[in-house]
Write a protein that binds this DNA or RNA. Structure first.
Lengths: 216, 216, 216, 216
DNA sequence: GATGAATGAGTCTTCATTCAT
DNA sequence: GATGAATGAAGACTCATTCAT
C-alpha cells in the first residue's frame, strides 16, 4: 500500500512559543478528526481550527501524514506510558489482583478520550502508522508474557507467549467492542467480573477475595 | 462524522450482461481495495481494472462508498450464512467439540482473503455500514447465548448473555489480530488449542479428546 | 454563441403509433421542464417520464436540442395560431374593442400553461431557437402595424411600425411581469382597464362604452 | 425547480492582490458569458480567461452560479444607483421633461454592454436571483408611484400604483426588446419620441418643447 | 517566522449518445 | 422498431502544498 511519505516533524520546536503552536495544532487535529472523521480532516481545516495560518502549520509539519502521525505517536506514547507503569506496578500483586487491575486499566483506557481513540483505531488508514500500533501491541504482549513467565509455576499455562497473545487480544477486544457496540456495558461491573473469571480460570488461579460482588 | 452518503445501489441489473458487469466491478473493487487501500480507491481505477467504462460503474453504484458498501454487505451476508449454518450444526455436538468447531470456523473465515477481510472491517465505519456489522455481531451473540442457555447445567457460567458477549469478542479478536499482526499464527495449531483451552476452562468443561497434554 | 446542431426531427411519424409516441415524449419533455427546469432536463429523464426507452426517444429526435426545439415550435405555433386568428377577427371591430380584445388575449395566453410558457421564455437558452421567438414577435408586430395602418386616419399616430413595436412591447411586458412578479394582478380588472386606457389614449381613441367598470 | 445552490461568496478578499483577482474573475465571467452563454460558461474557461488557476476561482466563488450571481448583484446594484439618483434629480423637473429623462436613462442603461445585460437578465431565474430583480423592480415602481402621487392633480390617472406598474413595465420592456431584437432602434430618436408621446398622452400632459411635429 | 493567496493535479460524477441484442 | 446497457468526453470541485509578501 503506497503513499508512504516522510513523517518526521520538520524541526524540534526550541522555543516555548513554537511548542505551544505545535500543541495547538495537534489539539485542533484531534478536534477535527473527532468532529469530521478522517475524510473531513484537511490541513486547511486544522489550521483554521488552530487559529494558525496554513503556512505556519507547514512550518511544523511537512505534510498531512506527519500531522496524523504525530497525533498517533502522542496517543500511543500516552497509552504506552499508562500501560507500562501499571503493568510494572501490578507485577508485585497477587495474580488475581493483577488480572483485575489490568482489565480495569484497559477499560479506563477506552474511556479516556474515547472518541479520539475510536477515530484513531477505526478511521485512520493503517498505512504507514500501522507500525506504531503494532509496536504498542507488541510491547503489551511482551510485558504480559514476561509476567506470565515469571509466575509460570502458579499458572496453568504452557506457552506464555501464546497465552499472552490470547489474553491481550481477548481483553482488548472485549473492551473495544463494549465501547463500540454497547457503551453502557463499559460501566457494568458484571462485565469486568466475568472477564476476570475467564482470565482467572484460564490461568488456573483463584480469585483473591470471595468475589466482592457475587452473582447477584 | 459526515461524509455519510446514500449508498443504495442504483438499479438492479436485469439482463445477464449487466449482472456480469456488476460482478466484474465488485471484483475489481476488491482488488483495488486490497492493493491501494480505501484512500487509494478511485472510481476511475476500479472502472479501469474492471475493464468497464466509468459510466457503467455509475450506472450501478451512485458513488465510491456504495462500491465498498456493496462489498461489505456481500461479505457480511456470506459470513452470516456460514456462521448460522455452522452454529446450527454444532448445537448437537458435545460441548468441547462444538467449541473447537466454532473456533476452527472463525479461523477459516479469517484465512480466506484475509487482506480483503481486514480492509473491509476497517472501512465499515467510514462507509456507514456499522449497522450491518452490529447486526452480524448481534446474531452471533444471540446464537451463542442460546446454546449456552440450553446447556446451562453442564456449564460453569452465570449469565449466558454476558458469557456469550465475552466469548464472541475474544474468539473474534484472537483470529482477527492473528490475521492482522501475525498471519503465520493463523495456521499454528497451538493457537487453536490454546484458544479452546481458554474457552473450555471458562465454561468449565473437559476437552473431548485424549486431553491436551495436561498443563500445570 | 455556439452549440448549433441540426434540430429537424429525424423522421415524420407516418403511423399513428409513432405519432402518439412523439406526443408522449413531448408531453414528458414539458413536464420535466416545468418540474426540474432546463438544467434538470435530461434525455434520460424525459424517456423515463414518457415511459419510453432512451433508444426510442433517439429514434424520433436526433438530439436534445431537437426535443426542446420541437416543444418550442409547437408552443409558438400554438400561440401564433391564437394570435393570428384573434387579430384577424378583431380587425373588423371598433378600435377600442379591438384593443381590449387583444389585451385580453395576451393575458389569457399567459394564463394557459403558464408554467411551461415561463420556463420556455425564461430558462431555455435563446441559442438557436431565438429565431423562432423573434419570428413570433415579428409576426405580431407586423399584424398590429397592419391594423394600425389600415385605420390610420382614426388614430393619432405617425409611424405605424414604431407604434406597433411600442404597443406590442408594452402589452406583452405588462402581462409578463404581472404573471412573473404579481400573479394576483393578472386577474385584476383594474390592470386591464388601465392598460386599455393607456393604449386608447396613445392611439387617440375613445373607449367604446362608458367604461364598464368605472374608477370604483 | 432545483439546482438552486448556495451562491454566497466564499471569502471577502482582504489584501489588494486578492481584490484584483476577484475583479479579474468577474470580468472574465462576463466575457465568457457574453461569448458562450450560460450553458457554455465553465469554471475552467473562466479561470483560464482570467489568467487565474481554477483553485483561485473556487477560493472566492463556491460554484458556477455564484459567479453569475455576483455579476447580477453588481449589475443590479449599479442600475439601482443610477435609477435612484436620476429619479430623485428628475422629481423637480416639469413632468414632460422628467418623462423624457427617465426614458433616456433607461435606453442608456440598455445601451451599455447590452449583450451582458441581456444574458444577465435571462439567467436571473436560473441563478435564483429573482428576489434581487423583484427588489429592483419594486424600488422603481415605488419611486415612480411616489412621483405620480405627488403630482396627481396635473395627471389624468386614477391609481398611481397601477399606473406606475404599467409605465415601468412598458418603458423597461420597450428598451429591453429594442436592445434584444432590434439594437439599431435603440439609437433611433423616433423610438424615444414615440415612447414619450405614449407616456405623455397616458398621463394627460403636454410635451414641454415646441411639440413633436403634430400627429393625426 | 508568519501569513494567506495562489496553484493545479487529481477525483468524482453526469448525461448525451451509440449500438448490440 | 424497441430496448437498455455501455460509453467516455466534459466539467465541477477539492485540497495538499508552495511561495511571494
Amino acid at each position: 500500500m503506497p503513499r508512504q511519505v516522510k513523517t518526521t516533524p520538520r524541526k524540534r520546536p526550541r522555543q516555548d512559543r513554537s511548542k505551544a503552536t505545535v500543541d495547538t495544532i495537534l489539539a485542533a487535529t484531534a478536534r477535527v478528526l473527532v468532529k469530521h472523521g478522517f475524510d473531513g480532516l484537511t490541513t486547511n481545516a486544522v489550521a483554521e481550527h488552530a487559529g494558525v495560518s496554513i503556512g505556519s502549520l507547514y512550518q511544523y509539519f511537512p505534510n498531512k501524514e506527519a500531522l496524523v502521525a504525530a497525533l498517533i505517536e502522542r496517543h500511543v506514547e500516552d497509552m504506552n506510558g499508562q500501560i507500562l507503569s501499571e503493568l510494572t506496578r501490578v507485577a508485585q500483586l497477587p495474580m488475581a489482583d493483577a488480572v483485575r487491575a489490568v482489565i480495569d486499566l484497559t477499560i479506563r483506557a477506552h474511556s479516556v478520550e474515547p472518541e479520539l481513540h475510536r477515530v484513531l483505531t477505526e478511521q485512520v488508514p493503517r498505512v504507514g502508522r500501522m507500525a506504531k500500533l503494532r509496536e504498542l501491541d507488541a510491547i503489551c504482549n511482551r510485558m504480559v508474557a514476561g509476567i506470565l513467565s515469571l509466575r509460570r509455576d502458579e499458572l496453568a499455562i504452557r506457552d506464555p507467549d501464546i497465552a499472552a497473545f490470547i489474553l491481550v487480544s481477548a481483553i482488548e477486544s472485549i473492551c473495544h467492542r463494549a465501547a463500540l457496540f454497547a457503551p453502557e456495558k463499559l460501566g457494568d461491573p458484571r462485565l469486568v467480573d466475568e472477564a476476570c473469571v475467564m482470565v482467572n480460570r484460564y490461568l488456573g488461579i483463584e480469585p483473591a477475595l470471595p468475589a466482592v460482588r457475587s452473582a447477584a
